[in-house]
Design a protein around this nucleic acid. Structure first.
Lengths: 227, 227
DNA sequence: TGCATACTTTGATGGTAAACGAAGTGTTCC
DNA sequence: GGAACACTTCGTTTACCATCAAAGTATGCA
């Protein structure tokens, strides 16, 4: 009879696979049950495509994700409900429980929703376009002097945001809009400010964002957005 | 901003803490709810005392274990049921849930055993189902008026139980039954009463519970359980 | 008081792995 | 066919962390 000489080794290998920031970001991005391509996950994780590929290979080896090859795309998704369950158990310990997302997408999700930890949907795309038009972001997604002033005025601690070991800002492609919105640490900080100032409120269970009337006014006044 | 800038960072730090073989061995050794000294855990983990000390410090920092100082001994134990729950979730992924890998697991372990600090196995699951059927617990695991009367009649000090800084009651998923039993402070109090009234007796070394003939009679009379 | 025990902290060392760019494989589209 | 794209593999660098012995702290016992 073959008995694993060290049953804890399997557990620790799995936990170690989760216990790397970039891989954790990928996994929690997949918690909604949706499949994503390698490049999308690279952006979410804030690493280069080659690095992401190595990470995904490891996650596949540990049976945490599965892959579906379709043409030149590779769609990665969580291996099964048990994986989501384990991730959920860890979230409880982290003190920020994330409910398991039911893979049915309400239509209001199209207007404003979160993509991982930043704003997406038409709201996210509009903001992204506005930042470009205002000259806050260069085309390499660096802050311009104007942008530095603008984001600081919104109450974003740029120094702390930069200090994170994660890509500062990047274009994150939206799965429905297929147009970029602002991801990375800056995108996350932006969502946090919007929540704090009650421009948007977050559905407890899902990814939907509701724009408040205050938010509507502010977005109109500050960015000329009609949302 | 006081909010964690990257919520996954907390998760990945915790997973990384578990994802080291020596630390994983320590944690799973503590899964029975028993507290152990630093030296005992060093032996279990197969590392030197100094290394074990570093590991335990990290586990404490991540709030996975707590320590009780008694004289020159330091007793380490799991921080709470949530930790056991997260570890259990990872075990499921590892494919060889703990307890099943020992082929000589006494069959009575399946019937009645402890899970951390409360009753599990078919006994725990049966009780859980009975409480639900009797309308003692709401589906959010709050006590109903009926339940308040019922548990008090069993000799459980509900006020003291509620005062504990720990989830009052929760569904704890069993690794073998794959069905919930009552965990949390209420589950712990329940086990304590069962032990005190000698409905069950506890194996000193392991997690097995033996149901006494008195317990058999009482469980039949009070809950209609045939165990 | 003095010695033994239990455990932690410190410092040095070695091994592991995460990161990236460049090059390679395979696919689609014109 | 060939150019563009998606993704992987390889090779190198760098940073972190697990490990132990030795020294330090604290408690118990005689």
């Amino acid at each position: 009879m073959h008995v694993d000489p060290d049953p804890d080794a399997a557990v620790s290998r799995i936990a170690a696979a989760i216990g790397e920031p970039a891989r954790a970001r990928m996994l929690y991005c997949l918690m909604d049950g949706r499949a994503r391509t390698s490049t999308e996950l690279a952006i979410v994780a804030g690493v280069s495509p080659s690095t992401a590929s190595v990470h995904l290979h490891r996650l596949k080896t540990e049976r945490l994700v599965k892959v579906l090859v379709q043409g030149k795309h590779r769609y990665y998704s969580l291996e099964g409900p048990d994986v989501a369950g384990a991730l959920e158990g860890l979230s409880v310990l982290a003190g920020s429980p994330r409910g398991r997302f039911v893979p049915s997408t309400p239509s209001r999700l199209r207007a404003a929703r979160t993509c991982y930890d930043h704003m997406a949907g038409t709201l996210g795309v509009s903001l992204h376009d506005r930042f470009e038009a205002l000259g806050w972001l260069s085309d390499t997604y660096d802050l311009t002097p104007k942008g530095t002033k603008g984001f600081a005025a919104l109450g974003i601690d740029l120094e702390a945001t930069r200090a994170l070991r994660r890509r500062f800002a990047c274009a994150c492609l939206d799965w429905s809009e297929r147009r970029p919105h602002v991801g990375g640490a800056l995108g996350a900080a932006l969502l946090k400010v919007a929540l704090k100032r009650k421009w948007v409120t977050q559905d407890l269970e899902g990814r939907a964002l509701a724009i408040t009337s205050l938010g509507r006014r502010e977005l109109q006044a500050r960015f000329g957005l009609r949302v």
